[in-house]
Structure formats: C-alpha cells, structure tokens
Amino acid sequence: MLTRFHLELGFAGLVLLIGATGLVGSSGLDFGWGADGPRAGYFPFRVAVILVAMATLVAVQAIINRAALRRVVVAEPEGLRRVLGFGLPIIGLVLVAQWLGLYVAMALYLLVVIRWQGRRPWHTALGVALGVTVVTFLIFEIWFQVPLLKGPLEIMLGLG
C-alpha cells in the first residue's frame, strides 16, 4: 500500500534529481554576473539551486510529519493496478510508434487494450481500432494536411 509519506519523498527525490541535473548542466555555462548583467547560465544555475533547496524542504517536512502522512493512503492496490494496467500499454504504444509509425501503433494499441483490458468482443475492438485510425488519417493527412509519423507499412502502401 502506497502512503502519502512515501510518495512525498519519492517526488521530492525526483525534483532533487532534476535540480541536480540542472546544476550539472549549468555549471558548464558561464553562470556569473557580467558587466552588463547575468550570463547565460545565471538563471539556470539559480533555478536549479532553488529546486534542490525546496525539494529538501519538502522532504524534511515530510519526515517530520511522517506519522500523519503515513496514515494517508494515496493509492489502493486495486486503483494502482488499474493505473499500471492503463499506463503500461501507453509505453508500448510510444515504443511501437518509434519504428512502425503512429498509425500502426495506435491501431495495435486500441485493438489490444480494448480486446484484453476492456474484455470486448473481437469485432468491437477491431472496429474501434480501424475506425479511429482511418478517421485520424483522413483528418490529419487529407483534411488538414498535417503529416503524422509513418513507418514501413505506409511506405509499402504508397501512403508515406
């Protein structure tokens, strides 16, 4: 079971990491104050310092109030399962889109998710997957002429 205490610490850690990355990134730049005001790295460096400091503050306060925060359950196991079940296939969608293109990826994603997660019959899943993909193609490629990411299939079909 995930409590507010752990989540507070986790996110403060993430902010700390982002801040530290910012420190590393801006230390390569000139972060001083020149004759005519701040240099390129001045603000990135200070923003990074503020992020590190504030994240530490949140973490310290979370630890001080840990007794109260531990009682707050932020996610029930069942809810968390739903979130992961919904979120992980999106990672798959993005991964597949990188090499097969967005159209193929979204059709596969819709088919898989609606068939197995939604437990819908094959014809519903197939209908939605193909319908949404075709409508997207018509709207973007034909109507607004905004090309979307394409892969080998579209090139094979002569649509790329």
Partner: peptide, 18 residues
Amino acid sequence: FSIIGPIIVTVCMVGAYT
C-alpha cells in the same frame, strides 16, 4: 470508459506528435 479512455490516449499522442 474502457473504449473511450484508450481513444483519448491516441488523441493525446497524435496531438503531441503534431
């Protein structure tokens, strides 16, 4: 929602790409 949710995801992804 098991149908609408995934469709919204694809709309968001298409939007991010455009």
